Computed example of a mutant assay.
Amino acid sequence: MLLNLQLKDDSGKTVTNMYSYHYQLNVVKEDGSHQVVPVEVTGENPTPLTPNSYVKVEFNSKRVLKGPNTVSKNQIPAKVLAGLDK
């Protein structure tokens, strides 16, 4: 799902000139397991992710720590790439 929405702070107030795209990414971890991770791209003029591109995301159980960053197919570990083909 992709939405370009005006950003709101924790209290629900609209943040002026800030927008975000919201995604539910199907992630394959380095151990080959799968997980759906919510990801948000935010800024004054955020760039949406390219459809069918490969992205790297570092996350913990609470939030995304780094990314999403676009990567080329040859940068993806073989075990992860095999999981993406399923």
Rank of each mutant, 00 (worst) to 15 (best):
G12L: 13
G12I: 10
G12A: 11
K13V: 08
K13M: 12
K13G: 08
T14P: 12
T14E: 14
V15C: 02
V15G: 02
T16V: 12
T16G: 07
T16R: 11
N17M: 05
N17R: 07
N17H: 08
M18A: 02
M18G: 00
Y19P: 00
Y19L: 06
Y19S: 04
S20C: 10
Y21P: 00
Y21L: 01
Y21S: 00
H22I: 06
Y23L: 06
Y23I: 04
Y23K: 08
Q24C: 13
Q24N: 15
Q24S: 14
Q24F: 15
Q24L: 15
Q24A: 14
L25D: 04
L25R: 05
L25M: 15
N26M: 14
V27T: 11
V27W: 04
V28S: 11
V28R: 14
V28H: 10
V28A: 10
K29N: 11
K29G: 06
K29A: 08
K29V: 06
E30R: 13
D31I: 07
D31C: 06
D31A: 05
D31M: 11
G32V: 07
G32S: 10
G32A: 04
G32C: 09
G32W: 12
S33I: 09
S33E: 13
S33W: 11
S33Q: 15
H34Q: 12
H34S: 09
H34R: 12
Q35G: 00
V36S: 01
V36W: 00
V36L: 00
V37H: 01
V37G: 00
P38S: 03
P38I: 01
P38T: 03
E40T: 14
E40I: 11
